[in-house]
Amino acid sequence: MTGIVKWFNADKGFGFITPDDGSKDVFVHFSAIQNDGYKSLDEGQKVSFTIESGAKGPAAGNVTSL
C-alpha cells in the first residue's frame, strides 16, 4: 500500500505514515526503511509499505520511497 509520511523523528528513529486509503495512521520504525545509508523519512514524503504485526499493534514494514 502507499501513503504519506505524517512525521518522522530521526533522533528517536520512528514516526507515522498516513495511508492513502484513509485508514488509521501506521507506526513506522527506522529498521523498516529499505534504503541504503541513513534510514530516515521526511514529512510529506510518498512511500510504499506493507502492514506488519508489531508488538504494540500494526506497524509499517518494507518501507520504500516513491
Rank of each mutant, 00 (worst) to 15 (best):
M1F: 13
M1P: 05
M1V: 10
M1H: 11
M1W: 10
G3M: 01
G3K: 00
I4Y: 11
I4T: 14
I4P: 01
I4R: 13
V5A: 02
K6S: 06
K6R: 12
K6H: 09
W7T: 03
W7A: 03
F8E: 00
F8N: 00
F8G: 01
F8I: 03
F8L: 02
N9W: 11
N9T: 05
A10P: 12
D11P: 08
D11C: 15
D11Y: 15
K12W: 12
G13L: 03
G13E: 02
G13F: 03
G13C: 04
F14P: 00
G15A: 02
G15S: 01
F16M: 07
F16C: 04
F16L: 05
F16E: 03
I17F: 01
I17Y: 00
I17Q: 00
I17C: 01
I17A: 01
T18P: 00
T18L: 12
T18Y: 07
T18S: 11
T18E: 07
P19Y: 06
D20I: 08
D20G: 06
D20W: 06
D20Q: 06
D21H: 07
G22P: 03
G22T: 04
G22W: 06
G22S: 06
G22A: 06
G22D: 05
S23L: 06
S23C: 08
K24Y: 09
K24W: 07
K24R: 14
K24Q: 14
D25K: 04
D25H: 05
D25L: 07
D25A: 07
D25G: 05
V26S: 01
V26G: 00
F27I: 03
V28E: 00
V28P: 00
V28K: 00
V28G: 00
H29Q: 04
H29E: 04
H29R: 04
H29A: 04
H29M: 04
F30L: 07
S31M: 08
S31F: 05
A32W: 04
I33P: 02
I33H: 03
Q34E: 09
N35I: 14
N35P: 07
N35F: 13
N35G: 15
D36N: 12
G37A: 09
G37R: 09
G37W: 07
G37E: 10
G37Q: 10
Y38E: 10
Y38S: 10
K39I: 07
K39G: 07
K39A: 08
K39M: 08
K39T: 08
S40Y: 13
S40F: 13
L41P: 02
L41I: 06
D42C: 15
E43W: 14
E43V: 15
E43R: 15
E43Q: 15
G44C: 08
Q45G: 07
Q45R: 06
K46Q: 10
V47H: 01
V47W: 01
V47P: 00
V47N: 00
V47I: 05
V47S: 01
S48Q: 12
F49D: 00
F49W: 02
T50F: 10
T50K: 07
T50N: 09
T50M: 09
I51N: 04
E52N: 11
E52W: 11
E52H: 13
G54F: 10
G54Q: 13
G54S: 14
G54A: 10
A55F: 13
A55C: 12
A55Y: 13
K56C: 12
G57I: 05
G57S: 08
G57Y: 08
P58G: 06
P58D: 10
P58K: 11
P58E: 09
A59D: 04
A59E: 15
A60C: 05
A60P: 01
G61D: 07
G61I: 14
N62S: 11
N62W: 11
N62C: 10
N62T: 09
N62I: 09
N62P: 02
V63D: 01
V63W: 01
V63P: 01
V63C: 03
T64Q: 13
T64W: 10
T64N: 11
T64G: 05
S65A: 13
S65L: 15
S65F: 15
L66S: 08
L66R: 08
